[in-house]
Amino acid sequence: MADQSAKFVEGSTMRHILVMSGTSTVGIMAIFIVDLLDMLFISMLGQAELAAAVGFAGTLTFFATSVSIGTSIAMGALMSKAIGAKNVDYARQIGSSVLVIAFIISAIVTAIMCAYIPELLTAIGAEGRALERAEAYLWILLPSTPLIALGMASGAGLRAAGDAKRSMWATLAGGIVNAILDPIFIFGFNWNVEGAAAASVVARFAVFYFSFAPLLRVHKLLAKPTYSNVISDARVMLAIAIPAIITNTATPIGNAIVTTAIAQYGEDFVAGFAVIGRLTPVCFAFIFALSGAVGPIVGQNYGAVRIDRVEETLKNSLIVTTIYTLVVCALLYLLQQPIINMFSLTGDASLIVAAFATYVAITFVFNGVLFVANTSFNN
């Protein structure tokens, strides 16, 4: 059994932030780079409506995944606090309960979305061939969402135990599987958007296995769930999960509103916006990772009543966020034309990507501050 001592209550908080964020970034970037490759491969087919279809579908899958992120935040917050307070038995109990509840919540959300796929796509502006292709993509990918909910929550459990490396390898495994299967399914089997979706489903199985197995076998941080424990733990878990879900789904809902507004200007704009949607998480993966990485550090120190270290962690997180965002925005501005060329974007599609790289990206410094604040409140 792995050592379950609270690793973050001593040593440099800046070092903990950089190590945890760095390893999380590698894993997150693997997933988002594959999403970007999906878009690149689909763009190579030379049909704007296919790229637009993946963009429309991505808006809905982003919403479903954001619900899973919300439940994984609860896992990280509760487990890290229990480990910090040296209450390993409760950490095991809450870990199992959160997995059960995360699966149930994701299954309900997924079932509702599957029942209304055409209506949801129409609501965000999809029509014609783009709507038909997006529907085909979603019918393959959406049903696997509860699996990724379990994978994300297990990964949060690994980070709560201070095992950022195994959490990274889980998402990295998913990225590698997806990157290998994408060209085989899309071009080799000639499955087009269905191929991209099928590759993502197999990748989700890999993420689940490589995050759940070490949490169970290496750290032994899961007890056998019981009905009474799940019911009693639901209240404390949902107190964190529900606000976290609402917070995390605000972004995809905002994206859906923007996609709907953009759709009326034509598929070129939607295709350009879809590229931005895939580019943003790759460029700002560190910012996304930071919120998941800072949580266990804050949680363990809060559980150990080391408020001075909680404050120090927050201050250092904001410094890291600001410096990182400024560097990435400078690179985006300088490399905007090669990016536009790489995705074969022309006209309106290239215009919207250039506008993002020049004017919009810099505002991510505020997203970074928001993510750090949210994760601190959750923990």
Results as ranks from 00 to 15, higher is better:
residue 108 I to P: 05
residue 101 I to V: 15
residue 94 I to E: 07
residue 32 F to L: 01
residue 12 S to G: 04
residue 75 M to T: 14
residue 20 M to E: 12
residue 23 T to P: 00
residue 55 G to H: 03
residue 46 G to P: 01
residue 31 I to T: 13
residue 25 T to Q: 06
residue 26 V to K: 00
residue 41 F to E: 10
residue 102 A to Q: 02
residue 89 D to Y: 05
residue 93 Q to C: 12
residue 116 Y to F: 15
residue 7 K to R: 13
residue 103 F to E: 09
residue 62 F to T: 13
residue 118 P to D: 10
residue 97 S to V: 06
residue 31 I to K: 00
residue 22 G to C: 09
residue 38 D to T: 02
residue 9 V to Y: 00
residue 99 L to P: 09
residue 90 Y to K: 15
residue 53 A to G: 04
residue 83 I to N: 06
residue 19 V to F: 10
residue 14 M to G: 11
residue 23 T to V: 09
residue 107 A to Q: 03
residue 48 A to L: 12
residue 22 G to L: 10
residue 11 G to T: 06
residue 21 S to V: 05
residue 116 Y to H: 13
residue 97 S to A: 14
residue 118 P to C: 06
residue 87 N to L: 08
residue 74 A to T: 06
residue 67 V to D: 03
residue 76 G to A: 15
residue 67 V to Q: 04
residue 92 R to V: 02
residue 11 G to C: 07
residue 75 M to Q: 14
residue 109 V to M: 09
residue 25 T to H: 05
residue 94 I to P: 06
residue 27 G to W: 04
residue 10 E to G: 12
residue 101 I to D: 03
residue 48 A to R: 13
residue 90 Y to S: 12
residue 88 V to S: 05
residue 88 V to F: 13
residue 9 V to N: 11
residue 59 T to P: 03
residue 70 G to R: 02
residue 89 D to Q: 14
residue 23 T to E: 14
residue 87 N to W: 08
residue 69 I to T: 06
residue 24 S to H: 00
residue 18 L to I: 15
residue 88 V to N: 09
residue 61 T to M: 12
residue 7 K to H: 11
residue 67 V to Y: 06
residue 42 I to M: 11
residue 91 A to F: 11
residue 116 Y to G: 13
residue 31 I to D: 03
residue 72 S to F: 03
residue 7 K to N: 06
residue 68 S to V: 05
residue 22 G to T: 10
residue 103 F to H: 08
residue 48 A to W: 00
residue 113 M to L: 13
residue 66 S to E: 08
residue 117 I to M: 11
residue 15 R to H: 11
residue 98 V to D: 11
residue 115 A to E: 04
residue 43 S to C: 09
residue 23 T to S: 13
residue 79 M to G: 01
residue 24 S to T: 09
residue 58 G to N: 10
residue 21 S to A: 15
residue 80 S to V: 03
residue 109 V to T: 12
residue 95 G to R: 08
residue 103 F to N: 08
residue 53 A to L: 07
residue 27 G to V: 07
residue 21 S to H: 07
residue 10 E to H: 13
residue 7 K to P: 01
residue 16 H to G: 07
residue 73 I to P: 00
residue 30 A to S: 14
residue 45 L to P: 04
residue 38 D to I: 01
residue 60 L to F: 08
residue 118 P to Q: 04
residue 87 N to G: 06
residue 19 V to A: 05
residue 42 I to Y: 04
residue 40 L to V: 08
residue 77 A to L: 05
residue 94 I to G: 05
residue 22 G to F: 07
residue 102 A to W: 04
residue 75 M to N: 03
residue 91 A to Y: 10
residue 95 G to W: 10
residue 86 K to D: 14
residue 59 T to V: 15
residue 118 P to I: 02
residue 59 T to W: 02
residue 44 M to L: 13
residue 113 M to V: 05
residue 107 A to P: 04
residue 78 L to N: 09
residue 98 V to N: 15
residue 41 F to D: 08
residue 55 G to L: 04
residue 82 A to L: 04
residue 21 S to W: 03
residue 42 I to K: 02
residue 47 Q to H: 13
residue 41 F to I: 12
residue 58 G to S: 11
residue 51 A to R: 10
residue 27 G to M: 08
residue 109 V to L: 06
residue 85 A to T: 04
residue 16 H to Q: 11
residue 75 M to E: 12
residue 6 A to T: 07
residue 100 V to A: 08
residue 110 T to S: 09
residue 24 S to A: 15
residue 21 S to M: 12
residue 43 S to H: 09
residue 42 I to A: 06
residue 70 G to H: 02
residue 26 V to L: 14
residue 6 A to V: 07
residue 84 G to N: 06
residue 102 A to K: 02
residue 43 S to E: 09
